[in-house]
Write a protein that binds this DNA or RNA. Structure first.
Lengths: 248, 248
DNA sequence: TCCCCATTGAAACGTTTGTATGATACAAAT
DNA sequence: ATTTGTATCATACAAACGTTTCAATGGGGA
């Protein structure tokens, strides 16, 4: 059966009707979960379609290939977190119409949406695991970067106003630091924190979720607020404390 | 070649003599690189053995299976970074025999070894990529965690002395934050920093490597030094952290 | 009613995967 | 010279992979 020329392509026909969220959506959902659990290479289409109660060929029907499914999964998974962070940033600016928002509020806007989306009543950590996986995968990393770029620029713009003493380069560096700290805390499967804390001490913590967010915000805020870095001149080639360079 | 009685298993025979570093070592080296580049599932044994100029069966000869190769690769890759950080910590303590080392030195001991091992004349970022991959992979994550645990405990112990006002739980949390920030900065393939900084501004940076380390240390030190987190009671309606505790 | 077409289903495709097998080369010990 | 054990090689194998094909299905306009 020869296909008509681009008339009704099932791959792009979803948003047209609007309620076709059946098989395609189930596949996307299952793929999200399994990609996060076992990685993009580790999760097979057979597992995904089985979990989605769909036929194996459905993947190649709704998406062209596994690569396209990965891309679609990333887009659908990243959209909520970007939107939530952007919304939190806007709300933060709205709360302080005349003056600049405090740094703690900005840090909260950066940290909280990801914490809510990952550990809340929502699916558990899948979004974060997906994100971590894409960091190491050059192919998917560009997709993620493209989605996040506007958000990052918005955040750095606001931070630049709050912290005018920092160069934009250093500010961007610290923004990356903040992202890394957030990701690490929320995704790490074996954090040093959990190993160290005694059960009794953990029991006193009323709400671990809120405690994590508060601690993260505290750390990130202080890190962002640090005075500008002054590079030690290498004129005196004195090794830094604890250098102990190992020759190869 | 002197030979002991009993079964000589080639799998455990390497560390005995010490100079048998030929094919087995080449495979380990190639596996390190390819696992980091394409992931544990993405890198095939045929690619690895070809890159190592070894026969395909050599993997199952020196290691029992691909899983064992992954484990061996992780161990050999993690050992240097753990040793380097531990050595840096010891050197830091040695440099201040009578009083406690400054926080910046401790942060440097945490950050610098990984930066040196990843971006120096050494192989590029492979160790970091490996580490990031293991974060998301539950199976390999335990191996990594086991290797890092003594190091983490040592670091947190020292930090606890320098920052006695923090609970051990919060200290461990901030230590994880510091690890996350370090990992993110050193591994990220598409950092916001690189996208934002103008080429001119980057040109002024004499040594980007040293600049990254200094900025990281500055951020981490300030984050660790932040005052203890006070949990805001959720009785208040809106999340308006107005408690802007001025640092000094 | 019929036809159309988007969707689903089962089965097979060719390729690539990790692993296993047996032959062979080589060097030291017997 | 023969034996012995280590190491490397080409090759084979079953399983699993992503992808394709084609028939069956079913509901909505004509």
């Amino acid at each position: 059966m020869p296909r008509k020329s681009g008339a009704k392509d099932p791959i792009v026909a979803t948003s047209a009707t609007g309620d076709e969220t059946d098989t395609r959506e189930r596949i996307l959902h299952a793929a999200n979960r399994l990609f996060a659990e076992r990685g993009f290479d580790g999760a097979t289409l057979r597992e995904i379609t089985e979990a989605a109660r769909a036929n194996l060929a459905a993947v190649n029907y709704y998406f062209r290939s596994k690569d396209e499914l990965i891309r679609s999964t990333l887009e659908s998974a990243l959209k909520p977190i970007v939107a939530a962070r952007l919304e939190a940033l806007k709300a933060c600016e709205r709360a302080y119409p005349d003056r600049l928002p405090p740094l703690e509020s900005l840090a909260d806007a950066l940290v909280r949406p990801m914490a809510e989306l990952s550990s809340g009543e929502n699916r558990d950590r899948l979004l974060l695991l997906l994100q971590v996986r894409t960091i190491a995968q050059a192919a998917t990393n560009s997709v993620v970067a493209d989605h996040f770029r506007p958000l990052h620029e918005r955040f750095i713009d606001v931070l630049q106003k709050v912290l005018p003493n920092l160069s934009r380069a250093e500010l961007a560096l610290r923004y990356d630091c903040a992202r890394g700290a957030t990701l690490q805390i929320l995704v790490d499967l074996a954090p040093a924190a959990q190993l160290v804390v005694s059960p009794a001490e953990r029991a006193t913590t009323i709400d671990r979720h809120e405690w994590l967010i508060a601690g993260l915000v505290q750390f990130v805020s202080a890190g962002l607020r640090a005075p500008p870095t002054v590079l030690r001149q290498p004129t005196t080639r004195k090794k830094a404390p604890g250098a102990a360079t190992k020759p190869r």
